[in-house]
Amino acid sequence: MSETIIQVRGLVKVYDELIAVNGISFDVKEGQVFAFLGPNGAGKTTTVEIIETIRTATSGQVNILGLDIKKNRTDILRRIGVLPQEFSSFDRLTVRETVQYYSRLFKGEPDIDELLELVNLTEHRDQLYMNLSGGLKQRVGIAVALVNDPEIVFLDEPTTGLDPRARRDVWDVIKGLKKSGKTIFLTTHYMEEAEVLADDVAIISKGDIIAHGTTSQLIDQYCSTIHVSIRGAGPGVEEVAKNLGLTLENRENGTVTIEASNNDQVVEILNNLKARDIKYDGLDIRKANLEEVFLSLTGESLTTGGEE
């Protein structure tokens, strides 16, 4: 088991009447991608900004890199990298100048070209920031978060508002960071992002952490349903479900989905199909995802909710 690099205990943040963060506690292990998953307004950004030392907690303890956030602000800032939510930068600096400017603030002398290579921006290095697409801008933000060779990188909603292609490009960059051994604190409301990238997921809703574990632990624990989707199935498939006592859902496109609660039931479904000689065109067996975990925990969807 690797070392704990961030330790949060009983963290509370109250705005006027609103309790944004309700006494949460969690640990982040060194070298892992930790995902803070929750809908907008759940308290993700508030929490992460408190850990980054740019917001003050109402109460609670946060230790990061062995340092207390209340006492060692400057030391902490030198050792972490931050991509803030909705990152933006100076319109009329080029990509290279932007990275250079931020590296000067840390008085470091990183190999800027190597950094740009790492986030795949080499060919855009001389373009003005204002002329970049959303995905490229986010990658500039990630490069900027790396100028001080930080031990922990905070990425607050790094792919919000990006198209699927740009999102995958940003994911590739994050995977590369993980390989280089950095600890990554990721906040997101995209369950797919957490599934693809995270070693450890904490699900936050209305200021409380309601579940914490690896993706498969969370799924096994909170939503073990296995979806067996049968495309173009002949008559008799309803019988199969009925005999096994399982729920069957009819889809409009001619696909029926039977919800199994464990692997044995899946095997039984398949055996039954074969025994009754029911023909079908295609078969898809899928475990539940984090979206469904969230749904089963809160009764709400991840992607709805107010602005944070």
Binding site: I54, R78, V82, E86, S89, K107
Partner: peptide, 13 residues
């Protein structure tokens, strides 16, 4: 508004 001040807050500046 652009969030640049927020970013600057996370630097030693």
């Amino acid at each position: 508004q652009k969030g640049i001040l927020r970013k600057l807050a996370t630097t030693p500046l």
